[in-house]
Design a protein around this nucleic acid. Structure first.
Lengths: 134, 134
DNA sequence: AAAAAATTGAGAATAATTCCTATTTTCGTT
DNA sequence: AACGAAAATAGGAATTATTCTCAATTTTTT
């Protein structure tokens, strides 16, 4: 039975769960080292990614390798394909846009970025193909 | 009069504005080189940042140096301070949360990340202090 | 056209993250 | 409680993304 246990993984989770400060991987590593002096940085990165993949943690405003730019500054949202990383535009319903603007105004924020996760059409096709072959 | 002009800056903007593909800085650089073979990568990074700063472009789902993690996986949003980069939690109104979930379901998305931009309390205090001194 | 200011190119430097692989740990089986 | 296969780790090298430095060039002002 695959239990996925290791002392490192548990420590990393405990450290992350002990704070609400949205720490970086580096910070988690430093904290972990206080209790396990030669835990490797690679392990921290690997296990944090695993926690995210398994839904036990989230990555705030995920980066996808490099920054992406867009000259169309009118407000619109994005969808990042969780399979291939492609970024697509996503245009919100009027209802959603109003709710977002209302929230921002109410709380004194100056702007927002909304990024949905999903699977792009290309990858969806491939997945269906793969499923059909099994 | 500061016109902020340079042939490189204009080319970089034209290249960015010519696509809807949310390119990386690297991609913009490659495209620019087709027309200006020894434009420097540093210039592209610098000028893209300038375009973002001046509102002529946006950075999709902004990264702030390093990835940030959070073990509290219940849905909540974030606010990134545009002055110091601090990440705070932001809890949406019921209205907004419903609108977001509705949109995601409607479009077949699997999740979303909403990050507001703003100025955290700390920096707001400092700004006010700075203003008062002028 | 000269002086001043702003911007650039090129590569070095830094930062963040991933890769490599020999070694160690885990865990079901004996 | 030892065995062995599979999974995970440490540590450092490698890679990737981005920023920095500064002399040279371009643009703007005079």
């Amino acid at each position: 039975m695959k239990s996925n246990y290791s002392a490192q993984r548990e420590l990393i989770y405990r450290v992350l769960a002990s704070t609400t400060s949205h720490p970086t991987a580096e910070w988690v590593w430093e904290k972990c080292r206080e209790q396990m002096p030669n835990i490797s940085k690679a392990t921290v990165y690997r296990d944090l990614a695993g926690l995210v993949a398994s839904g036990r943690a989230i990555e705030v405003s995920g980066t996808f390798g490099s920054s992406r730019f867009d000259a169309r500054v009118q407000q619109h949202n994005h969808m990042v394909c969780s399979v291939c990383g492609a970024v697509e535009d996503s245009f919100p319903s009027a209802e959603l846009r109003l709710a977002l603007e209302h929230e921002a105004q109410e709380k004194g924020y100056t702007g927002y970025g909304l990024t949905f996760g999903g699977v792009c059409e290309n990858c969806r096709k491939k997945q269906n193909g793969a499923l059909a072959q099994q």
